[in-house]
Design a protein around this nucleic acid. Structure first.
Lengths: 241, 241
DNA sequence: TACCATTTGTCCGTATGTATT
DNA sequence: AAATACATACGGACAAATGGT
């Protein structure tokens, strides 16, 4: 016995939560069965169940009948507001974050893209695909559409800087704001599963948004697909109560 | 031939989009294969693909390699802001919406619930489960925790009124506000799949939130699971630019 | 695990009509 | 009128993903 006081289930809970937090059991892996745990800790299965109940409430595991208890990924927080920026956002969690270039081209705007950017259908736009990493884990893939005449060579500049914020600065846009964001969810397709280095298809948080400059002119239409179990979106309750 | 002028692909697009909008092909169902369509319309497969491309851009279908093109649900908009209310929200879409009671009990607060409601662990809370309907379609299931001493009999009152907003009014809370919302996604479990009348497990939008009264005191902690393909969450870009 | 049929994705072509310069 | 670019339409081959066995 390591702990001497307090209820037994608390000892079990703390021991297991330690195993998880110290990485001895990895996210996605199954905990030992309740039977095995009750043997290991030399307590009744009910005591184990009490401890597992606590771990569920702490969001550390999810239990599936007939299968076992899976250790959950601890998601990053992604704050969504008027000035949403990926890397700033992640550094709030004191995490190292980067965007990585995947693909870029100049294409002609479809109806949907044109509507969001308030430009004529079929006018040229920069199209950039990228993925985002935080603490070595891939957390999103994004597609962005940026009007072309305003920003020639954007693709090259983004490949150099690795940041949209910095790229925009080169074109004299030193600040920009998030207009409406629309959030849905769907399963990842094959490409997304690969880019995010997922073992299998998983639900994604899909965020569609438009960024505008100081004058309110659309400068970017984007579709970001977040890996659902690696990240949660936080929508702050607006300012003062 | 029905149409006499314009490119062939436009005729195909309009014909298929009509099939979808008139309900001849239901959401979730597969379109005919490209081969079948090219036989039916007596055009080359490439022409069919041009038409499907348009339908994708219109958000009417989603295409999966090796499988086919699925007709999408046209999701309701759910505006999330400081004063988020389900039924008001839905009437903005001129939709008929209701909440329905599923289960209610007085339970003792777990750590997580206690933390959100800023009450002691194990103090009594009302626990209510419900589902929400819009236009006859079930769009969410929700679990809500409300401090007990403040609102005895809340469960009975909710069963009578069918509305949390109205129930709160009985206890003198005539207005309340949304604090932070946290959004994640995961697959529905068996219970949720049944409550939402889904054919199979599907990704859900999971929103955790706290509502507070005028003084900023937490009055409700809730976890709402929205059916991902029947609803999209809209986060308004904060006020003036 | 491996294999298979089905279906979509991508690429190589060809030809024709229309609008622009 | 000629040259050019572009959208449309068709032909065919193979790669890649899915769902089932």
């Amino acid at each position: 016995m390591t702990s001497t006081k307090g209820p037994l289930w608390r000892h079990v809970r703390d021991s297991l939560s330690d195993d998880i937090r110290k990485g001895r059991i990895l996210p996605g892996e199954l905990l030992q069965t309740e039977k095995e745990l009750s043997d290991r800790f030399e307590v009744h299965r009910h005591t184990i169940r009490r401890a597992l109940q606590e771990l569920r409430e702490l969001g550390l595991i999810r239990t599936e009948q007939g299968r076992g208890s899976v250790v959950l990924e601890q998601p990053f927080e992604y704050k969504m507001g008027r000035r949403t920026r990926f890397s700033e956002n992640m550094s709030l969690n004191s995490l190292k974050a980067r965007s990585h270039f995947l693909y870029g081209d100049v294409i002609s705007a479809s109806e949907v893209v044109a509507k969001h950017l308030q430009i004529p259908v079929r006018s040229k736009v920069n199209y950039i695909e990228m993925y985002g990493e935080a603490e070595g884990k891939r957390v999103f893939v994004a597609s962005q559409y940026v009007p072309y005449p305003d920003m020639e060579d954007l693709i090259r500049v983004f490949r150099e800087t690795g940041s949209m914020t910095q790229s925009y600065a080169r074109y004299g846009i030193h600040d920009y704001f998030r207009k409406d964001s629309r959030i849905t969810t769907r399963m990842s397709n094959a490409e997304e599963t690969a880019h995010l280095k997922l073992r299998q298809k998983q639900p994604l948080l899909v965020v569609e948004y438009v960024n505008v400059d100081r004058r309110g002119r659309p400068i970017e239409f984007g579709i970001t697909r977040f890996c659902g179990d690696r990240l949660e979106i936080v929508v702050p309750g607006n300012q003062g109560i």
